[in-house]
């Protein structure tokens, strides 16, 4: 693998140059990611949120639930047309939602066959990141693509990822410009 600014034809002292370029670009990525992590790490203090999630063929309303780390979510789950599910990634939660009922059936996939009937389910958003909730109950043609998103801020993967993108760009530009200057000398 060669550095982003590595050359088509090896320049004099190519090996050293390539190593330098790779280090420069890697430093850019690392700095960018770190910058992204640090810059967006602040969130509001935790609070309780009461949210009704309505499932229909083939989406949830609201499609995206955006909360802060530490928030407690009190979810009421409702199906509007046919039976749906609500499998929340990373939270050991799976729900079977039947339409026109006042309760829904909850289980924890780590204990697969232990269903309880509930009117509300509590999710503690203690891990930041993006967690999709997916329909776990075959509900028609687009069932495999029925999902929604729980974003727990600070969404570090996104911040680091965007920072790394920018860092990769800036690092590559820096290395390439330095290279072009030294080549023209």
């Amino acid at each position: 693998m060669t550095g982003a600014a590595a050359d088509v034809e090896p320049a004099p002292g190519g090996g050293r140059h390539t190593l330098f370029a790779a280090l420069g670009v890697a430093a850019g990525v690392a700095l960018g990611a770190a910058l992204g992590l640090v810059a967006f790490d602040q969130t509001e203090p935790p609070r309780d949120r009461h949210i009704v999630v309505r499932a229909r063929q083939y989406a949830y309303d609201p499609p995206v639930i955006r909360v802060n780390r530490g928030d407690r979510l009190f979810l009421k789950l409702v199906a509007l047309d046919v039976m749906h599910g609500f499998f929340l990634e990373g939270h050991d939660l799976d729900v079977e939602i039947a339409p026109q009922q006042s309760t829904f059936k909850v289980r924890h996939p780590s204990r697969p066959d232990d269903w309880t009937e509930q009117e509300e389910v509590v999710v503690i958003a203690d891990t930041p990141g993006k967690f999709r909730f997916r329909c776990s109950h075959t509900c028609g043609s687009l069932h495999p693509f029925m999902s929604g998103e729980l974003i727990v801020e600070p969404n570090r993967v996104l911040h680091a990822g965007l920072g790394a993108c920018g860092g990769l760009f800036v690092g590559s530009v820096a290395v390439a410009r330095r290279r072009s200057r030294s080549a023209s000398r």
Binding site: T2, A5, V25, A164
Partner: peptide, 24 residues
């Protein structure tokens, strides 16, 4: 599934790295 974004982000960065390197 909660690890998916953590896999996707580096894959994208690899793609961008090659895009930059090869376009140069």
């Amino acid at each position: 599934p909660e690890w998916v974004p953590l896999l996707q982000a580096p894959l994208l960065l690899v793609g961008l790295f090659y895009a930059l390197s090869k376009s140069l």
